[in-house]
Amino acid sequence: MNDSFLLDGEDIPFTPGQTVMQAAAAAGKYIPHLCWHPDFAAHGSCKLCTVKIGGRFATSCTVRAAAGQEVENRTDELDAKRRTLLQLLFVEGNHFCPSCEKSGDCALQATAYELGMLTPHFDHFYPDRPVDASHPDVLLEFNRCILCELCVRASRDVDGKNVFALAGRGTRSHLVVNSDTGRLADTDFAATDRAAAVCPVGVILKKRVGFAVPIGQRTYDRQPISAGLRADDKAGAGFGEAG
């Protein structure tokens, strides 16, 4: 089979069953995304990967590639929409990059750089969210959660533990952990879990290694997120050495 579709005018081959995102990633083409990860089932919630197929909006991480389809990706129209989505995520949570130890390895921040977001634009919600420092090896900083559910998927599908879930509805949606007390220390979570290394932002943080790599020399300080390297690959390895 030699199927292909057009992504911003470029021929992208795909195998049947692949989504537009999977095929683009395999071909080394960047479609902005936050909740998608190559190792996990697609979720389709962040909507950063919204593309246009035949003039209609579609979520590229969930829509199947089809032969001959014409996909618009990095157009001014779509990047403007994505910038607005990023701005909504920034004002919804408490994202203070200067005091975040994930800065430089954060996919939200790096995607905002990629899309040239200069301002959060909207009025900030400044939600009141707690921090959970109960676990000996891992800190949970809920202020930065973008509800991508990557940790939910990693803990459920890879670790087999179901440590995380989303609770609430609408803007009250929030991450909860699986214990009677609601504390991470009272779960079977371990710093070696896949879920400990998958957070694209600064919610799930391994303790004592936050500044092993100085600010300014981190994944997305060295190359834009569109170049394809994921901070979580490196972060997982890095913890193994330091731990």
Partner: peptide, 21 residues
């Protein structure tokens, strides 16, 4: 709509709240 948005996707979850504000 801000009350009823399920909160799954970014545009609806935050967009309906921004609209209400």
């Amino acid at each position: 709509f801000a009350h009823e948005s399920c909160g799954f996707c970014t545009p609806c979850r935050v967009g309906t709240a921004v609209n209400a504000r």
